[in-house]
Write a protein that binds this DNA or RNA. Structure first.
Lengths: 208, 208
DNA sequence: TTTTGTGAACCTATTCACAGCG
DNA sequence: CGCTGTGAATAGGTTCACAAAA
């Protein structure tokens, strides 16, 4: 069965919500109540889950803890994953200390840059290293994914380095299209473009 | 005619690319060459543009400068838009100094927080103010959009404040569903979820 | 009765394929 | 000719509606 990509990003959202419910001590929840929390339709939630199995109890709903673990398994989050950041500008430095990652099963283990001004410097207690040592360090520290916060003109080169080192998941913040082999998955976060599309909606005459 | 939301986000990407081409001095470009740069299909590019008019010349392609201006008009970017950031944590502070915004027609004019430790402090040369003064300041400074980088538990309240102040475009970084009136547009950037969906792909056994 | 799981129907978006213009 | 613009065909994703389970 082919699983829609959108299902995967919704599961990622469900996971965060289940973690929260679990911390609250909620034992079980129906697809209807859950859907209101995450902002989708109940059928959508059920269909998304149905790609992977039957996790609910008819007439009852889903066990919060159980479902959380199932989704962790689906997303490969049973154990924490190590992540490297390449590019220690404003954004890279902020992400190095972003609390939201740890709680969701990610560990920012390694920071890289190519500038002598930044190599050796500490960010949030972690030392920034030379990106030319990426392959060796990534192997040693079992890095599985990379966050690229380099300038546009450095992007393709940085990507080459991480792909050559065997990384198969890249989160790209440069507002430029990244060409990678098809066994590598890239997620793009284009912050200025998010604002541009908001601009369309706030500027529109018919949209109020 | 109804315009797909995805078309709007692609136009936002096209805009960045056209700006780059324009800086390079490229005079004109075909949908085919352009599509390779942005990573979509040529028909997609043409269809997206066709919702708004006929901007190309048959047998020739598109005038770079002209198309850039047309898209600026569509997205409401003819003049720079003022943006506020609420929540001066790691991420908010980084975005306050993010260079990528200015070049694309956005000005971060106003910074807010609710913590006495942060109010009055300067971030990238801009002073952080009390979020309870949001409505007044946003009006004075003609803020049209807001970036929310507040903790999850403060999100809904922050949103209420900006919506009450007449803001109709919100970029939300908290990994929580935000309820707003339907005349307000929210774009969500959920960084941990981006990593989770990458995790699915790097963990998968069949996906290499 | 309540709520899941899921084929079928529907709706939205992408790609095809070609007419028509310069 | 080369390349755009666009209806028609296809693919992809969402919602409906209901049978089955507890």
């Amino acid at each position: 069965m082919k699983i829609p990509e959108k299902t995967i990003s919704r599961l990622s959202i469900y996971y965060r919500q289940l973690q929260f419910l679990s911390q609250q001590g909620t034992f079980s929840i129906s697809s209807k109540s859950f859907s209101e929390l995450v902002g989708f339709k109940p059928e959508q939630v059920r269909k998304d889950l149905s790609y992977f199995g039957s996790f609910g109890k008819t007439g009852f709903g889903y066990n919060v803890q159980g479902l959380k673990l199932e989704i962790a398994k689906i997303l490969g989050l049973e154990r924490s994953k190590n992540v490297a950041i390449i590019g220690m500008g404003n954004l890279g430095a902020a992400l190095a200390g972003y609390r939201g990652f740890e709680a969701q099963g990610f560990k920012i283990t390694s920071l890289f840059d190519n500038s002598p001004h930044k190599i050796g410097k500490k960010y949030k207690g972690k030392i920034c290293r030379d990106v030319s040592d990426f392959a060796r360090i990534a192997k040693e520290e079992e890095v599985e994914m990379a966050i690229l916060t380099v300038p546009a003109e450095a992007l393709q080169e940085a990507a080459q380095i991480v792909v050559a080192a065997g990384i198969r998941g890249i989160l790209n913040f440069a507002p430029v299209h990244l060409k990678v082999p098809k066994n590598v998955k890239v997620n793009n976060v284009d912050l200025a473009s998010e604002l541009k599309s908001l601009s369309f909606f706030v500027s529109g005459t018919k949209r109020d």
